[in-house]
């Protein structure tokens, strides 16, 4: 899995940086964010193209510009 290890993902800020930016760090705020994301994921489940594999395969474009 060398490929995976090489890939860098967006970092999570540590707590001291949260203080620096003045972002809310309360657990209530974090729970709200998680709830928002959960409802967004529920919506993606509803609207995502039914047959993803076929949708992706059929999305063919010609070059442009």
């Amino acid at each position: 899995m060398a490929e995976q290890e090489r890939t860098q993902r967006p970092k999570q800020a540590d707590h001291s940086q949260d203080v620096e930016t003045g972002e809310p760090t309360s657990s209530a705020g974090a729970e709200q964010l998680k709830a928002d994301l959960d409802s967004l994921l529920d919506e993606i489940d509803l609207v995502l193209e039914d047959n993803a594999e076929e949708f992706v395969r059929n999305y063919v474009q010609k070059g442009g510009e």
């Binding site: 928002d36 967004l40 919506e43 993606i44 609207v47 995502l48 193209e49 993803a52 594999e53 949708f55 992706v56 999305y59």
Partner: peptide, 25 residues
């Protein structure tokens, strides 16, 4: 998983009923 590629494409779908960008906040 092809569903991840589908999310990538559908992010840019202009139709309000399908667009993921319009749902992304």
């Amino acid at each position: 998983d092809p569903r991840l590629q589908a999310i990538d494409l559908q992010y840019h779908d202009l139709r309000p009923e399908r667009s993921l960008a319009q749902r992304a906040g």
